[in-house]
Amino acid sequence: MTTTAGSTVAGPSPAGRLTIDGLGKHYSGDVFAMRGATLDVAPGEAVAVVGASGCGKSTLLRLVAGFESPTEGRVLLDGRPVTGPGPDRGVVFQDYGLFPWLTVRENIAYGIRRRGVGRREALGQAAEHAETVGLGRFVDAYPHALSGGMQQRVGIARVLALHPSVLLMDEPLGALDALTRRQMQDELVAIRQRVSTTVVLVTHSIDEAVYLADRVVVMSGGAAHGVPGHVRDVVPVDLGDQRDTASPEFRAIAQHIGHHVHTPVRDGEIAA
């Protein structure tokens, strides 16, 4: 912790270790939305979660974020139980959620100010985080003047400014056109190289998952299939930092994941 101009300012948090232990969630009816999910995410690791609609991807993310409580099992962050939302977990949604009456700098500074940091210091920190996501020249622009990809970068910077030890992303690029989405994937890779944090990303795109993650979690099932959503496979992505989406190695991993995503749930299949 450092103190500037009478305000206490949090420094960068170390990347967190996330432990998902036998996690399950029951809403209504006879079938769990998700059950038996178990996963260990190492500090600084990026994990992508893929699967058909209704398999429990977003449920898993909401439980890790603390927005909902599990019916069974638990989530641990650095060995401590997650019992609700907290500043150690930052969440980026598909909806940018920016305040249209605030500039880029002011949008990023909003959460910093809520932590008791003075306006001048908060705006200074916000400008630094705008640089981190490549928006240094646009700190005084308003959201309506930005493209969709730029607005999402503001949303990411606003979360990173709070120094979470785990960054949770729920379809953050889903609303973008194909070209902008590809550019933002590269931007996310660059941001991750500059900012050390643990990442859990939910996406419907298998190629995006392989491009961005160290491991890909494949979920299956869900109420529509009559069995709980569960982890079917965890696929390592051993491709290094430079990933060519057209390479045979990349395509082989994507096809392996696609096979698991699109293969119907087997009779008697249970959570891993």
Score class of each variant (00 low, 15 high):
T2G: 12
T4M: 09
V9L: 06
G11C: 13
G11D: 15
P12D: 15
L18W: 00
L18V: 13
T19P: 00
V31E: 13
F32T: 01
F32M: 09
R35S: 15
D40E: 14
A42I: 00
G44N: 12
G44E: 13
A48W: 02
V49M: 11
V49Q: 12
G54A: 10
K57H: 08
S58H: 11
T59Y: 04
L60H: 06
L60Q: 04
L60A: 12
L61C: 11
V64Y: 04
V64E: 01
F67S: 06
P70N: 03
T71Q: 05
E72S: 12
L76E: 14
L77R: 02
D78L: 03
R80C: 04
R80G: 09
P81L: 02
P81H: 02
P81G: 05
P81A: 08
G86W: 00
G86F: 00
V92A: 03
Q94R: 09
G97W: 00
G97K: 03
G97S: 15
F99T: 07
P100F: 14
T103S: 15
T103G: 02
T103N: 03
V104A: 06
R114H: 12
R114D: 13
R114W: 07
R115N: 14
R115V: 03
G118E: 13
G118H: 06
A122T: 10
L123Q: 09
A126W: 04
A127C: 01
A130C: 05
T132Y: 00
V133Y: 11
G136N: 09
D140H: 12
P143F: 03
H144M: 05
A145Y: 01
G148Q: 11
M150Y: 13
M150Q: 15
M150E: 14
Q152I: 12
R153N: 11
G155L: 06
A157W: 10
A157L: 09
H163V: 08
V166N: 06
V166K: 03
L168A: 10
M169L: 15
D170S: 05
E171T: 13
P172H: 05
A175F: 04
A178Y: 10
L179H: 14
R181D: 02
R182M: 14
M184F: 07
M184S: 08
Q185C: 09
L188K: 05
L188H: 06
V189L: 12
I191N: 11
V195Y: 15
V195K: 03
T198F: 11
H204A: 14
H204G: 13
D207L: 05
V210K: 06
Y211S: 09
L212P: 00
A213F: 08
A213Q: 08
A213N: 08
D214A: 02
D214I: 01
R215M: 10
V216H: 10
G221M: 10
A224V: 11
V227G: 04
P228H: 07
V231Y: 03
V231G: 04
V234F: 01
V234N: 11
V235H: 07
V237R: 00
G240D: 09
G240Y: 06
D241I: 05
D241E: 15
D244C: 12
S247E: 07
P248W: 01
E249N: 12
F250P: 08
R251Y: 00
A252V: 10
H256L: 12
I257D: 11
H260C: 01
H262T: 14
T263K: 09
D267P: 15
E269L: 04
I270V: 15
A271N: 13
